[in-house]
């Protein structure tokens, strides 16, 4: 399908599902028309509440996102979901399986679900996640949930995108909780203990609260919530809590501050991406990469010198 950015833009703003999904594809593929579209789209964004859902694999992020979407729909709000799953570093392929847990809402016209592969991006998100979120924001979603890949310790990119971040944990992971304290545990605005019908909930609840009580008291203390996503228990309360937090952040100016910070980061990322592409192009054009590799393996040169050589050709 040949498509220009004006048509895409109109499609998104007029809530055309097919054109909106096409717009996201072009954004993901870094199509030049999509950049023109994103530029025009920008002033139509900023109305959605962007909520990040992150946590270890199997903690119930997809199911929880499904139920949160349903709770938002009960209030008559529209929902966008961007669900990220890992891309194979070897083949570039991916199995995107988050929709499996989102059956009931999948035909609701008030819900737009989009699965994305990370496509080489580390940090728990896909490179084009922010742009996809923008498209859904302009499309008119009241809430946008970003579901990250199952994360370990340091995949904290979600804070650079979301207005607020929910960390989903499950009981019985024992020492894992300790080990993730340093990275991901620092970025939560809300902590949710999911699968609360399992053993060990109280212990985790206490541990989390103890950890949070040790934080800098000038910061807003994140609430610790309990849910059973499978049955929906505690989920509407979680959404209420998110709304309350969102409201407070808006009132206190924290939301605006966070969004500004995120925009700065986005510009840096765009610059890096443009720069890297340019450098890689120059490196490829030298046709010397194999020679460089030979020299380095014979210890006649080293990676730093090679990098400087290539930079000097810019």
């Amino acid at each position: 399908m040949d498509i220009d950015f004006q048509k895409l833009l109109d499609g998104v703003l007029n809530k055309d599902v097919r054109l909106t999904s096409r717009a996201i594809t072009l954004v993901e593929n870094e199509n030049p028309e999509s950049v023109s579209m994103l530029k025009k789209l920008f002033k139509h964004t900023g109305n959605a509440k962007i909520i990040g859902i992150t946590g270890p694999p199997g903690s119930g992020k997809s199911t929880l996102t499904d139920k949160l979407a349903k709770a938002a729909r009960h209030q008559g709000k529209t929902v966008g979901i961007v669900a990220v799953d890992p891309t194979s570093p070897f083949t570039g392929g991916a199995i995107l399986g988050d929709r499996v847990r989102m059956q009931e809402i999948s035909t609701d016209p008030g819900v737009f679900i989009r699965s994305m592969g990370t496509r080489g991006q580390l940090g728990g998100l896909a490179k084009a996640t922010m742009s996809a979120v923008r498209v859904l924001d302009a499309y008119g979603c009241d809430y946008i949930f970003i579901e990250t890949v199952g994360v370990g310790q340091s995949e904290v990119d979600i804070i650079k995108l979301a207005d607020l971040v929910c960390i989903v944990l499950i009981p019985g992971m024992g020492d894992d909780i300790q080990s993730i304290k340093a990275g991901i545990m620092e970025i939560g605005d809300i902590f949710t203990i999911n699968k609360c019908d399992r053993e060990g909930v109280e212990r985790l609840y206490t541990e989390l609260n103890m950890m949070l009580d040790l934080r800098d008291s000038s910061e807003v203390r994140p609430p610790v919530l309990k849910t059973i996503a499978q049955t929906g228990e505690g989920v509407s309360e979680m959404l209420e809590e998110a709304d309350k937090l969102f409201y407070n952040m808006k009132e206190s100016g924290k939301l605006q501050k966070r969004r500004k910070r995120n925009l700065k980061i986005e510009v840096e990322n765009i610059l890096t991406s443009i720069f890297v592409k340019k450098v890689n192009k120059v490196a490829a054009e030298t046709g010397l990469m194999d020679d460089y590799a030979d020299k380095m393996s014979k210890k006649e040169s080293d990676p730093f010198t090679v990098a400087e050589d290539i930079l000097n050709k810019l």
């Binding site: 083949t91 570039g92 392929g93 991916a94 995107l96 929709r99 499996v100 699965s115 592969g117």
Partner: peptide, 8 residues
């Protein structure tokens, strides 16, 4: 090398 969306 394809992205496969699996819906169950």
């Amino acid at each position: 090398g394809m992205e496969v969306i699996y819906t169950g």
